[in-house]
């Protein structure tokens, strides 16, 4: 029995890991794009983007998952995600990426706006181009500023992946709970906590190491 449970939990954890990795891969760049949109001088871009960020940050992720997966079928009469688990997984990833990109965009914005104006001006008077200033001067300072808040969001994401179960994406909590219904076993559900702890522990270590790497300078 123990082996069956572990095999099932491992499978669920793999799904959790997939959600985690794909969300980060999508949300890092999308967040930067949203950040440029919400700080744009162009009002027709700025305000719609800010509206979207407000909606996404102002509603629960669980609700967003339900709307994104069931919305097309319910409102447009066309379930464009298709039947079966791959459609559910895709919808979950899309919801997670949008949600996390909006949070990331605000972190990026804080990081970029936190760099003193003098840094840009110092680059300008030295004849540097806008992109040289961004990549050679600003970028690393932004990275250093955003690592702590980004770390918090990343750890939150580890746990948020469990929300994908509301649209029947079989992540690790689902796998654990399945044993309650099928075999009357409760411990597999509680045991999933060990996976989460190990995973977030490793991430905390990695983030700490990154932070240490950037300790050579101060902003």
């Amino acid at each position: 029995m123990f082996q069956t449970v572990m095999a099932s939990l491992n499978e669920g954890f793999l799904k959790t890991l997939e959600i985690f990795v794909l969300t980060l891969l999508g949300a890092f760049p999308l967040g930067l794009i949203i950040c440029f949109g919400s700080t744009s001088q162009f009002r027709l871009l700025k305000y719609p983007v800010k509206l979207i960020v407000w909606c996404v940050r102002g509603t629960p992720l669980m609700l967003q998952l339900l709307i994104i997966y069931y919305g097309p079928g319910l409102i447009l009469g066309n379930n464009w995600w298709g039947n079966g688990s791959s459609g559910r997984f895709t919808a979950a990833i899309v919801a997670f990426i949008i949600n996390y990109a909006c949070y990331f965009s605000e972190i990026y914005r804080g990081g970029i706006e936190g760099v003193p104006k003098g840094q840009y001006e110092a680059g300008q008077v030295l004849g540097m181009t806008k992109s040289q200033i961004f990549f050679k001067v600003i970028f690393l300072q932004v990275i250093k500023r955003i690592i702590p808040p980004m770390g918090n969001e990343i750890i939150t994401l580890v746990k948020d992946t469990s929300l994908a179960r509301v649209i029947a994406v079989y992540e690790i909590i689902w796998s654990g709970q399945a044993f309650i219904k099928s075999s009357g076993l409760i411990w597999p559900l509680f045991f999933t906590g060990v996976y989460y702890l190990l995973f977030s522990g490793i991430l905390t270590l990695l983030l700490g190491r990154l932070e240490k790497k950037l300790e050579f300078f101060r902003v």
């Binding site: 003193p116 003098g118 840094q119 001006e121 110092a122 680059g123 008077v125 001067v137 690393l140 300072q141 250093k144 050579f216 300078f217 101060r218 902003v219």
Partner: peptide
């Protein structure tokens, strides 16, 4: 053609 030294130095910290 110009160099500028700022009141607050504005050195690049990294």
């Amino acid at each position: 053609h110009f160099g500028l030294v700022f009141q607050s130095f504005n050195l690049f910290p990294q």
